[in-house]
Design a protein around this nucleic acid. Structure first.
Lengths: 201, 201
DNA sequence: ACAGCCATGTAACTTGTTACATGATTTT
DNA sequence: AAAATCATGTAACAAGTTACATGGCTGT
């Protein structure tokens, strides 16, 4: 929903044609999320379909202009005035990966964590380099770009912290015994057999 | 790619039928990502299509068992041994939202940030409550669940920190002047008609 | 009898995304 | 003249997701 709404929010500034809309999007995000031009058109089609925008075949020269509708405007207002709500556990791939990995026998979780940490630290370094080589923002788009870099840095830092924390927790869990990887509960035990509860002993 | 690979990784433990696979997934993730049973079957179909799994209509009683293939096994190995790589700027909705919002005239960014912070802090509180009411893990699935909660907490904390940081940066940018929201660049400047800049008044 | 879980699936739809086709205009 | 950019689109696909249909079996 974010690309869609991002484009709509820009369209809210005034009518645009597709190509221009991409230019605006790229400019405003400092090309942090390079946008394929095709996606602009598919998204515009869908916005029109859903009555958030309308298509005005204005000129005779084939230039197609899109304008936001009232419905679209209220959608943008809502978007901007209500927080992004993270449903349940965000389906973050790394989290899911580690969550499942710890339940799997024969997986060296310490190594998984180590590999991730290395990668993330490297990313963090290159991000920091980028940030340090950036001058103070003189326009809104430069500011937006900086905020994006910041966000990535914060996320990466958080990820590393979480990895460290998880590793510690793992060490502790192993030390205290108890925690063993899960076998498949009653693989094929079914049909008649009760089996219930699964679990570990 | 994470649901897909998560299921495949469980299938790597041994053949399963669909319903059982969901049970395993839910158990191992502490139901952090409740999985619709339909999705298990669609995903299994796609895994079979892509040769990561094979279907074995074993029993006569309609029970359909799926098994991982060699290709699937190597896919899981790769997944577990290589880090999750965050491409460019992750298309995080909040980040994109703020990035675009700061370039928009007539948007009270401070309020956007404030609303988000409130929501995130609330989430953080409820997460902390959940965490504190959780006992030490005695099985791998409990551990997985805890790691997931931790991840959410770290992410939420990072988000709040980033919001604070962004707010400060905004204040500074405004104080130093310079940074103004962007109007649409040359809406329709080409092609004869000038059409002006849209915008807000 | 009825509720509820076990079990399998299908059809449809969403957003995101890319590869490709097409042509006009502008710049080099 | 060739290369780049402007400009519009389409077809196709991926992954995620849900709503629904169907039926057997189990416990109350």
């Amino acid at each position: 929903m974010s690309v869609r709404l991002g484009l709509l929010a820009i369209l809210n500034q005034g009518p645009c044609y597709g190509y221009q809309l991409r230019r605006e999007f790229d400019r405003r995000t400092g090309s942090a999320w390079p946008m394929n031009i095709g996606q602009v058109y598919t998204t515009l089609d869908r916005l029109v379909r859903d009555r958030y925008a309308s298509r005005m075949e204005s000129d005779g020269d084939g230039q197609v202009t899109y304008a936001i509708t009232d419905q679209g405007r209220s959608e943008v207002d809502t978007w901007l005035s209500s927080p992004v709500v993270r449903e349940g556990a965000s389906r973050d791939e790394l989290v899911m990966k580690l969550a499942i990995a710890v339940t799997l026998p024969g997986v060296d979780i310490a190594r998984v964590i180590q590999a991730q940490r290395t990668a993330t630290l490297q990313l963090l370094q290159s991000l920091t380099r980028v940030k340090n080589s950036t001058t103070d923002p003189t326009s809104a788009d430069e500011l937006a770009w900086l905020l994006t870099i910041d966000a990535m840095i914060f996320a990466a830092e958080g990820e590393v912290r979480w990895l460290d924390h998880s590793e510690a927790r793992l060490v502790r869990a192993v030390a205290e015994g108890g925690v063993e990887p899960l076998p498949l509960s009653g693989s094929k035990v079914r049909r008649g057999r009760p089996v219930k509860a699964a679990a570990n002993e």
